[in-house]
Write a protein that binds this DNA or RNA. Sequence first.
RNA 1: GGCUCGGUGACAGAGUGGUCAUGUAGCGGACUGCAACUCCGUGUACGCCGGUUCGAUUCCGACCCGAGCCUCCA
Length: 460
Amino acid sequence: MSLTLYNTMTARKEIFEPLVPDTVTMYVCGPTVYNLAHIGNARPVVVFDTLFRLLQTQYDTVTYARNITDVDDKIIAAAREGERSIESVTTEFTAKYREDMAQLNALPPTLEPHATHNIDAMIALTRTLLEKGHAYESQGHVLFAVESMADYGKLSKRSLDDMLAGARVEVADYKRHPGDFVLWKPAADEDPGWDSPWGRGRPGWHLECSAMIRAHLGDTIDIHGGGRDLIFPHHENEIAQSRCAHGGDYVRYWMHNAYLDIDGEKMSKSLGNFHTVRDLLQSYRGEVLRFALLSAQYRSPLNFSGELLDQAQATLDSLYSTLREVQDVAVDMEVNLADEPFYHALNDDLNTPVAIAEIHALCKQLHKAVPGEKPALKGRILAAGNLLGILEQDAVEWLQNAATSDAISAAAIEALIEERQAAKLARNYARADEVREELLAQGVVLEDSREGTRWKRKSD
RNA sequence: GGCUCGGUGACAGAGUGGUCAUGUAGCGGACUGCAACUCCGUGUACGCCGGUUCGAUUCCGACCCGAGCCUCCA
C-alpha cells in the first residue's frame, strides 16, 4: 500500500517515500496567537491530523510539528488594544487554540515549537544568510535578496519578472528589489525585541518556520503543510531562506489545503465573514465540525454553511445509529487495512469523501449481515472512523446527548416513555401517539422494537 | 494588469472516454397499531459552443462565469 500525495512543488501526485525509512517528519504552519481560531483555520488542522493518523499506520516514527507564532505585529496590536501584556495575549490564545482543536478530535502534535523560544536559531540563520551573500543590511533591517537565488519562485510558479509586472504595492525604500523580504527588523523600545548583531529587533514572519524546522526536525523534512494562501510568499520565502543557508532539499512534499468559502468567497478575518470554532461549538459538537471539514477533499474549496453542518450532523447521526445496532456485538479489531477500500481512498492523497462513502458501504453491509459477520464489520467501521477521527464516542451517548442545556432531560423522556408503554398496554393508542408527538416536538424520536422503546435526539 | 485554479443533480461532494459514486433532503413502496430504524425503488447532473472519437461530463480549442495569490491571512 503506497501513499500518494499531491506535491505543490511538482504540481502532481507522487508516491510518498520518506527520506529516512520508517521515519516521517512533518511540519504544519500553526496559528498566530492573537485571537480565536475560525473554522477556516481549523481545516488544515483537521486535514493534517488525518494525515498524521494515516502516517502512523505505516511508519514507526512520525514527528509532527505545528508551530505557535507568538511574536508578530498583530499580537502587538492586540495587546495594545486590550491594554494588556503581550504574554497574556499569547498565553490566552495559545490555550484556547489547543482547547478548540482538541474539540475537533485533533491529536496534539508531537512538537509545538514557539517562535519566541527559538530566537537564537533565527539569528543564526540570518547570520548565515548574510555571510553567504544572500542577505544585506539596510536601515536597521536585514533583508533577503531574492535575486541571489536562481530558482526563487519555483514553488508558487512565478518569476521575479511576473512579480514586478504585477506589483501593486509600494516598495519600501530600504529594499534593493521589490521582492526582497525582511529577515530581521528593528523593534521599537516598547515592543518586544531581542538583542542581535543588528541591534535590538525581532524576526520577520518567514524566518521562524525555517529556523524551527531545522532546529527541531532537521535540514530536510518530508512534509510541510498549510493553507494555499501560504504558498506565496510565506513558503516560497522559507525555501529561499533554508536552501540558501544550508543547501540541499528543504521540504520533499509540499501540501496545501484549499479554503472554506462563504457564498463563493473565501472565509477570512479581513473579510469578516468568518465563524470562530468556539462559536460554532455552541451549536454543533466538535465531531460534526470535523466531519463537515472532511466531507470535501482537502484540495477542493468547501462551501461552508449552516446547511453543511446540519447535513454533517444528520450523516453522523445515521452512522452512529448503525453502531448502536451493534452496541452489544464484540469488536473484531483484526482489520487488514491493506484490504480496505477506505484505506485505499485515504492513501490516494487523502480522499476523505471517498473514505466516508466506503464507511457508508460498510454500514449497509452491516445492516444485512448475519450475526457471525458483525464483529468484523464493526471493527472495520471503527477502524475507518479511527483514521478519520470520528465515530469514537459511545453511540447511545452520541444520539441522546442534548445539544442545549434547556432541552428536556433524559429522565423526563424516560418517564414519558414509561407512561406511553402503559398506555400501549391498555391499548390507549391515542395517548401513546400523543406522547410520541409531545416528545417529537422537543426533538426526541422514539423507536419501538421487540426489546422495548429507545430514543434519540434529532436536531433540525 | 501578472500568475494560478475552478464551474457536476435541491444541497454537499467523488469520479470516469462507453452499466453505478456516495451522503443529506424529497418522492413512492415494504415493514410498523401509528411511527422511527432498516430495506427496496426513484430524479434525462455534469457552465456554453465547437473539434477529436464509433462514443465525451471525462481529451483539445474558443467563450461565459466565478475564485485565489500578487499585501497580514488556513
